[in-house]
Design a protein around this nucleic acid. Sequence first.
DNA 1: TGTTGTTTCCAAAGCGCTTTGAATAATTCA
DNA 2: TGAATTATTCAAAGCGCTTTGGAAACAACA
Lengths: 341, 341
Amino acid sequence: MNLRELSAQLGLSQTTVSRALNGFPEVSEETRARVRAAAELHGYRPSAAARRLATGQSGTLGLVFPDERNLLGDLLFTEFLGGCVEKASELSYDITLGMAHGSQSEEAVYRRAVRNARVDAMILSSPLIADPRPALLRQLGMPFIIHGRTQSAEPFGFLDIDNEGAFFAAAKLLADLGHRRVALLNGEKSYNFAADRERGFRAALGLRGIAVREDFIPAAPMVEQTGLREAGRLLQLPLAERPTAFVCSSIGEAQGVRRACNAAGLKIGRDVALIAHDDRIHDMGAENFDPPLTATQSSIGDAGRRVVELCIAMLQSPNDPMPAEIWPADLVVRASTMPAP
Amino acid sequence: MNLRELSAQLGLSQTTVSRALNGFPEVSEETRARVRAAAELHGYRPSAAARRLATGQSGTLGLVFPDERNLLGDLLFTEFLGGCVEKASELSYDITLGMAHGSQSEEAVYRRAVRNARVDAMILSSPLIADPRPALLRQLGMPFIIHGRTQSAEPFGFLDIDNEGAFFAAAKLLADLGHRRVALLNGEKSYNFAADRERGFRAALGLRGIAVREDFIPAAPMVEQTGLREAGRLLQLPLAERPTAFVCSSIGEAQGVRRACNAAGLKIGRDVALIAHDDRIHDMGAENFDPPLTATQSSIGDAGRRVVELCIAMLQSPNDPMPAEIWPADLVVRASTMPAP
DNA sequence: TGTTGTTTCCAAAGCGCTTTGAATAATTCA
DNA sequence: TGAATTATTCAAAGCGCTTTGGAAACAACA
């Protein structure tokens, strides 16, 4: 059943039926009710393709798989994506995915998505400090929103968590517990969130007059392997030099740190303090860590939901100021932190 | 630049230009070349929306987030999804995702996707033994393909791996190494793949005259936690009763088994034999296990790529027999298996 | 020569919706 | 009461593509 048939049934014009269904004011409530009932009765569903053609809007948001694929990154992306999809479907939007394949560069993926005009806007995740995508998309005329932030000169809408504040709080807690040798196992330096976290970390220690050893801040993918390797390395330092506390950018890394501690016969929460950022991924909550983990936490799934809301709002009111939302990440103290030995 | 403008530029009709670009035979090669050159020159891209409306095809495949979300399930889904997206974008198809939200049932998600006619076909993953989706989609007239299989009476196209054969081979290897007490840590019984694996496992042991203890075949989500718990339980049995070998449905579970063995002071590859199925997920290859893990392996990412190919082929030749591809899963022997003590 | 095929191209009719510009009916105002 | 508003409804023109049913040009055949 299409619009023409439905309006014929009702003895109304397509205009009126279309407007009745889309909530336009210039149609009487009585007619609207009649139209709605008939639409319901006949199971009428407007054709998405026809609407797209007529309006020039696709009702679709695009997201591109990060090109750095690893275990934890995939989990974070999936959790974020799940949030996006959930909210999008609630708001009758679709999410479509892009991905570089073979020799195709990431830029080509974005170009392709834009040229084909299949999406109304794109959601950028995992932004780099110097990320080429905002400039590219602006030049191509494609609206976008960033989950995170970047140093781009372009204006952009974004939703981010307060990484700097969170890691400031974490480092400050450790300093206040008397820890003087604190390591930061961070993500790759090129990511904006990693830079923010490092800045917060350094600021807190600086505030307490603690010098930061550069080799205490290695940067590598946020996987367990990294935690194991780097913590293992640091724990081999002489007793008076080795860190008494670790801050990790992910719970995966924290698991690696725990394994390194186990191997060194050290116990977390007794011999070594540990704080990690907790993105609230399924089955990886800091509260289930052994021991329960002190963590800065913020749900990346919630962020996905909110990003989609903001993005759609942006599309619907292009003249409103761009969204710029920064969520605090609470520091939840659990059993993995204790005063310095 | 749209088709009308382009054909005006060329002094040709829209028909001819459209046909030239879409490779129809009734246009001379000379004209085709001229059209292609002009299209390239002006950066002409056909409007996806217009094409969709005209053809009734959306050029989009749908995939729905599994409703069971857990760490390993997410990783498997993401890896599969990544493969789908990669191949789809190569073939100029889009992938859009659906997801149940709030009170909306999974069935409602499929209904919605179909009604809105936004996808040409759906890809079903993680099928249950008795899965309601094939019947639902057939009734709704939506083409689909299954990654995996199901016992549905409906005919369906699918790509699956030979789970039964793989686990037959794994169990047979262990039996031939002299193991008489072998446990199977499988996924939830309602999944078809889990049933297939159990069947293969039982068949191999039966062939060697080994009775299977029911409590040696627990079913639970394929996460590390399950492996830890179930292996921990089984390893507490008296020495003469406890399993000397484990077969796991995932490397995640195998990690749990390793932790349980560590806790019991047992070493894998020396005291306990271990085989797992390896879906070739990033950073979780069986070869990186400690010790390197004997595994049945098959890339779930490759499966995603192939499923998309098959699905698109199905759409393009609806009268061809439905795809029914079964991939063998090689048993690769590494250091985690040894003769029974 | 006329007839039959081939090859190459085209005009025009959709696909199903939104939206503009007008017309008609109902209401209000002076 | 007639004119001016306001509230409803409509006809028709797109949106940009595909595809049907011919037509024109040319070659091949008898």
